[in-house]
Computed example of a mutant assay.
Amino acid sequence: MPGAARYDDIADFYATGWTDTIDDPASVRLLDLLGPVAGRRVLELACGHGRISRELARRGAGVVAADISEALLEKARAAERETPLGIHYIHTDVTRPGVLAIGTLGTAPDSDTVFDAVVCSFGLSDIDDLEGAIAGAAGALRPGGVFACSILHPCFPGGPGVSGSWPGDARYHVEGWWRADGELSALRRQVGANHRTLSTYVNTFRRHDLWLDEMAEPEPATDWAAKRPDAAKFPIFLVMRCVKNGKPLAR
């Protein structure tokens, strides 16, 4: 069973800052690239307090969601008790070999079936073992299934008060975990993030037979950009859609 997670200590802060209103450009584009989910089985990695999982369930998906933070999962389960959507939440480390394999998802309904889609909303940079996470995601997908993710753009250099994807005293090509110091980067000041180059992400997908099918670089919300005009000059978000085996299911 996973130990304490970085998000355990800030669960209240995170849940308050990221509500069920799905109107931020990156999340909107992520769900758009994921495509119609009604009647499909979807697995969310690093689900946090469940905001994306709940939206997927409202759109008709059968959702299983996993996270390493028990504190965030308690909030997700509380929301499920209040408004049941049929989401099954699992406390686990998704990078462990076999955790997401067929038939190993605990008491999840129909846990012996593979998934039509796997989604990860801003979670990959929080996961130290990218290789393990992507191996698990690919292993949980049926051939032709979709893996969709959103991340802070690996090429985002930051701006006044806003930390970029890598430390200000380092270089883009130097990868590793670090803790932001920008006064406007409230979340990453507390939990840090893993910086990886764009090629690292794409090559990792390819090693696990996830072929990049479409990508998007949504602009930030107007009010965010107005307060951070220098940072808004650069690409901030990256959303990617990959297909297992390169042949998508009919949408």
Rank of each mutant, 00 (worst) to 15 (best):
D169M: 02
G164R: 02
Q190K: 15
T197E: 07
S199D: 14
T197V: 07
F156S: 00
N203W: 11
G182C: 01
L184H: 14
S199E: 15
D181M: 04
V191S: 11
G159Q: 06
Q190R: 15
S185T: 15
W166Q: 05
F156E: 03
Y201D: 00
D169V: 10
S199H: 11
T204L: 02
T204I: 08
L198Q: 09
R189Y: 06
V191N: 03
T200A: 04
H173E: 15
A170V: 10
L184S: 12
S165M: 06
R196I: 07
V174G: 01
Q190V: 06
A170C: 08
F205R: 02
G159I: 06
H195F: 05
V174N: 08
A186Y: 05
A180Y: 01
Y201H: 14
L198W: 09
D169L: 06
N203F: 09
N194E: 11
G176D: 00
W178G: 02
E175W: 03
G158P: 07
P167N: 12
H173G: 11
H173C: 12
V162C: 02
C155F: 04
V162N: 01
C155H: 05
F156R: 10
T200R: 13
P157E: 08
R196G: 03
P167V: 12
G159E: 04
R188H: 12
W166A: 05
H173V: 15
G168C: 08
Y172V: 09
V191Q: 01
D181T: 15
R171S: 14
F205V: 03
E175Q: 13
W178P: 00
S185A: 11
W178D: 02
L198I: 13
F156Y: 10
S163C: 10
T197R: 08
G159T: 06
S165R: 04
G182W: 09
G192M: 05
W177K: 12
Y172W: 09
L198N: 02
F205P: 00
D169G: 07
H195G: 01
W177P: 03
